[in-house]
């Protein structure tokens, strides 16, 4: 496995995934698509376009799928992982911008940030969570990220497994573990498939707001206790 791997969590993204993978082919990087229990041809499309596929038999959500990719990349000895969405929002051309701070050693995690892409209402929600958590990031939910080996080890651990979303909870773990997070401004386009799959109804949005608020409140002052816990680190697989 190469040093840098792209991980794409995908659930029922067959129509958009092919285009995304063809774009990535231009920069010749190894791609792992984590199929989050899709009922369409996502796995097939991924394989047809040269990606390695991890198929989850139970739907784990975007973060669960991403963590699977991180665990696998760690086992295979990868040093850096880029994550991006399967719906074509993220421009693979920006990957080099995300990798630069990692290669310069100035960050452990780089977030491709584009806060202007979201509605005023969602920006309001972000401000609320920023106030609650004192997180400083401009873009709390971007799935376009680059992780170095240390960040991968931390985020592949058990304590990051019960998170349902890849935003505030993951960012809080990064902060608690002392990871250096930086943001790089990127352009994020429209989804090739229309609406958000995570926030597809007001009920889901409300549940997300309540659950994330509880998560934030539960972690108030939890920085030290999180640091004290031992990490279960994925070991690189010994190849025969």
């Amino acid at each position: 496995m190469s040093d840098t791997v792209i991980v794409i969590p995908a659930r029922n993204e067959a129509p958009a995934l092919g285009g995304v993978l063809q774009e990535i082919r231009k920069i010749s990087m190894q791609v792992i698509v984590v199929d989050d229990a899709s009922s369409d041809e996502t796995s097939h499309v991924a394989r047809e376009n040269g990606a390695e596929v991890l198929s989850l038999v139970i739907q784990l959500g975007a973060w669960g799928a991403t963590q699977t990719g991180l665990r696998y990349a760690l086992r295979q000895g990868a040093q850096t992982v880029i994550t991006l969405d399967a719906d074509g929002q993220h421009e693979p051309a920006h990957i080099v911008d995300l990798l630069r701070p990692l290669h310069e050693g100035t960050a452990d995690v780089v977030i491709g940030s584009c806060p202007m892409r979201v509605s005023a209402l969602r920006r309001l929600a972000w401000n609320y969570f920023r106030w609650l958590t004192r997180l400083r990031m401009d873009d709390l939910t971007s799935g376009f990220r680059a992780y170095n080996r240390r960040a991968m080890e931390i985020l592949a651990s058990r304590e990051a497994t019960l998170l349902d979303y890849q935003d505030v909870g993951v960012l809080m773990i990064m902060r608690a573990k002392g990871l250096r997070v930086s943001e790089v401004a990127v352009e994020i386009g429209l989804r090739r498939n229309g609406v958000s799959r995570v926030f597809h109804s007001w009920w889901v949005v409300m549940r997300y707001m309540i659950e994330t608020t509880v998560l934030c409140l539960a972690n108030v002052g939890g920085q030290t206790s999180l640091q004290k816990r031992d990490l279960e680190v994925e070991q690189p697989e010994r190849t025969p």
Binding site: V34, S43, H44, R47, E52, V53, L54, S55, L56, V57, I58, L60, G64, Q67, T68, R71, Y72, R75, R158, T161, L162, E237
Partner: peptide
């Protein structure tokens, strides 16, 4: 937690075994 870790591990294991499965005659990838 156990279910999620197990699900992830199963997916990783299947991916690791896929080259072996593909090497078998009459096998279809995935």
């Amino acid at each position: 937690l156990k279910l999620r870790r197990l699900t992830q591990r199963l997916a990783m294991l299947e991916a690791t075994l896929e080259p072996v499965r593909n090497a078998e005659p009459d096998s279809k990838p995935g």
